[in-house]
Amino acid sequence: MSDTEHPGSSERNQAHESAAGHEGRPCSCAGKSGEPDNPDRRKFLIRVGIGLNIAAGALVGIPVLGYLFSAFRKKEERSWISLGPADQFEAGKIRLASYRNPGAKGWDGQSADIPCWVRRDDSGEFQVFAINCTHLGCPVRWFEESGLFLCPCHGGAYYQDGARAAGPPPRGLYQYEHRLRNGELLVMGGRIPTLSQSV
């Protein structure tokens, strides 16, 4: 290892020498800006340099951090979305519907098509359930024959009104806020539901 250090250190020495040589020559600037060997001046320059870099680092870093962590700030992304005419949903049935997520980007492709379960009970009242199981978010499937929603991941089961029936889910299905306007069924959607925040 010591062999490899030699060329480097000699280069350093050379550089030092040449710098010294440079200093030795008469220079118009040297006299004006004070003694080059002055240790106070060296310290001052280092301090200014560090300070300048901290300031510049902040100028660069704050926008970068702000850019990155802007994803922590949540705007209200939800809005009312139409699931189509209300009378396409038969009373007493549960059907899969889907909507394009509000605020979908052009590059989202199919991933912004969000499914949901629309239940219309015998009296014509609506319930709209999120597709995600409340346990770990897998897509629940409706089985009309047994009147159950079943989750393929861990076997969570829910009754037709969304109440938890069996298995690991800690609560019933997430439900969308919904309303009827001009014969259309609207839901308040726009985000994936989790235990800390329903749809």
């Binding site: 994803a71 922590f72 992304e77 939800r78 979908a104 800390s196 925040q197």
Partner: peptide, 24 residues
């Protein structure tokens, strides 16, 4: 769904993970 279980900042964390309100 797992991150959404984090107390207090669950929604913010999931939003950060997905880069938005949904997986897209």
């Amino acid at each position: 769904s797992m991150l959404g279980r984090v107390p207090f900042i669950g929604p913010e964390l999931t939003h950060f993970l997905m880069g938005g309100p949904i997986i897209a």
